[in-house]
Design a protein around this nucleic acid. Structure first.
Lengths: 239, 239
DNA sequence: ATTGATTTTGAATTCAAATTCAACTATTTT
DNA sequence: AAAATAGTTGAATTTGAATTCAAAATCAAT
C-alpha cells in the first residue's frame, strides 16, 4: 500500500527537505543492514546505528521494521519490472537475445545484491500483500511469452492454462541455481569460476532448448557453445 | 548436530517409553503447527497447546523451537533422499521414467504438505547447518545425472563444473512452479486444474526437452503429449 | 534574535514470549 | 506399600527488543 518513491508526505512522513533527507538516510541504512543480516535478524537498533541516529527517530518516520523493509525492497525491485527498459537493445524477433536480456537482469541482481535478493524472498514469505506484489510483477514479466506461444507454435493446441504452466516451469530454470550460487555461495558451484555473463548464457541456453528443442544459434554463444552436441538420446549407451 | 531418528536418549531425552511417547507427541504437534503457521510465527505455546500439555514440558524434551523444528523437518525430509527407493520401479535406461520418479517425489511432497515444504526453505534460510544438510542431500540427488553426462553425450567436451551447472539449472525447472502452485496457491495457476501426475509430467517433459533436445516418447505422455509440436523456431513468425 | 514548528535524543517503559522451577502426579522398583 | 524415579504442571520470573515521550536541538520565518 505505501507508495514507491522516496519523497512524498503521508501524515507520518516528512515536512521538510531536512526530514526527507533523514528519512532517506534511514532507508539507505536499512538497505545495508538487510544486505548484511537479512530481514529476520534485523533490529531497529541495527538500522539506527547504521544510520547514525537515535533509536527513537525511527518511529518518527516509520511505523515498524516491516513497513520500512517493504518500502525499501519495493524501491529496489521496481526498476527491475520495466519490460521496455529490459528489452531496449533487443533486435526484433531475436528470441535468444530477448530471453537473455530478461535473464541478465535477474542474474545481475543476484550477483550485485545477493543479500537483498534473499530478503525479497524472506519478505514475500512473511507478508501476503508484498508477496502478491512480487508475484504479480513476475507473472506480468512472463506474460509476453505466454501470449505469444499460440502464435509461435501454431501446430500446438494448448490446453487451458498450459502455456502459462510451461512458461513458469521454464522461468524456474534460474532460481535454484542463482540462489545456490550467489546466496548460499556454494563452494561446489564456485569451482567453475563463472562470470555473470556465463551464467546468464547458461540459463538462457537451457531455457531456449526446452522451449524450441534447438540449441541457440552458435554465433551468440561463448560459454555454452560446446553444449550444442548435447542432444539425442542414444538408446545404446545405457547406465 | 542432533540425531535423526525418533527414540534415542541423549542426556535431555527420554528415560522411558512413556517419555518417548510424550516426546513424539510434541514432535507430531510441532509438525502440525509448522504446516499451519510456518516456522517464524510458531510459538512454544502453540506447540504445547496442540500437543495438549503444559508449556513447561516443552523444555523437558527440547532445548528450543529451532532444535525441535530441525529435528522434525529432518525426520520429514530424510525418507525423500533415498535414491534406491525413488528409482525402484524404473526400468533400466528409461530416462524419462527416471526423471519422472524423482520429480514425482518432490511434487507429491509439495502437494501433501505445502506448509512443511515452505518450512524447509524457511529453516534453510535461518540455519546454516540445516541449510548444508539439505543442500548436500540435494546435490547428491543430482550427482547421478552429473556423473553420467560425459558418457551420455560423448560428443561434448564439458568444461570444468559445467555438467553440474547444467543439471542445477534443469533441476530448478520445478521449484518456482511448485512454490507458486502449492505454497502460494496461485489462483492464476489453479485455473488449469491439475493433478500431481500432470504437474510431474510437465516438469519431467521440460527437463527432458532441455536435456536431450527431444520431446519425450509420446507413449509415456498424457498431459504434455500435445506439446511435441512445440519445436522449431520459425523465423517468419515474428512478434 | 525571538517565535514556532520540526527534528532528534536517549532513558524509561511496555510488551510478548521464552525460560525457570517448586510442587504435584504417575509409574516403576524393591 | 513405601521409596525412588520419571514425567508433568502452570504460575512467577527473566529476557530482549519494541515503543513511548518529555526534553533538547535545529531550522525557517518574521
Amino acid at each position: 500500500m505505501s507508495q514507491s518513491t522516496a519523497t512524498e508526505f503521508d501524515t507520518s512522513q516528512t515536512r521538510s527537505a531536512r526530514g526527507a533527507a533523514a528519512r532517506a538516510n534511514i532507508k539507505r541504512a536499512a538497505l545495508n543492514v538487510l544486505e548484511q543480516v537479512g530481514y529476520h535478524k534485523m533490529r531497529i537498533a541495527d538500522v539506527t546505528r547504521e544510520a547514525g541516529v537515535a533509536q527513537g527517530l525511527f518511529y518518527h518516520y516509520f511505523k515498524d521494521l516491516k513497513t520500512l523493509t517493504i518500502e525499501v525492497l519495493t524501491d529496489f525491485a521496481n526498476p527491475a519490472t520495466d519490460v521496455e527498459t529490459i528489452e531496449k537493445d533487443v533486435p526484433r524477433g531475436d528470441w535468444y537475445a530477448r530471453i537473455y536480456a530478461h535473464n541478465h537482469l535477474v542474474v545481475s541482481s543476484y550477483a550485485n545484491r545477493p543479500g537483498v535478493m534473499r530478503c525479497l524472498l524472506q519478505m514475500a514469505d512473511e507478508d501476503a500483500e508484498f508477496s502478491d506484489l512480487l508475484r504479480t510483477a513476475y507473472r506480468e514479466q512472463l506474460m509476453w511469452l505466454v501470449k505469444l506461444m499460440p502464435r509461435m507454435f501454431p501446430g500446438v493446441r494448448f490446453k487451458r492454462g498450459q502455456a502459462l504452466m510451461v512458461v513458469y516451469s521454464l522461468a524456474g530454470i534460474g532460481e535454484g541455481l542463482l540462489r545456490e550460487y550467489f546466496v548460499n555461495n556454494s563452494a561446489t558451484l564456485h569451482n567453475s569460476k563463472l562470470q555473470v555473463d556465463d551464467i546468464t548464457e547458461l540459463l538462457t541456453t537451457m531455457f531456449y532448448r526446452a522451449l524450441f528443442l534447438e540449441h541457440p544459434p552458435a554465433k551468440a554463444l561463448k560459454y555454452t557453445r560446446n553444449l550444442a552436441a548435447m542432444a539425442g538420446h542414444d538408446e545404446k549407451r545405457e547406465l
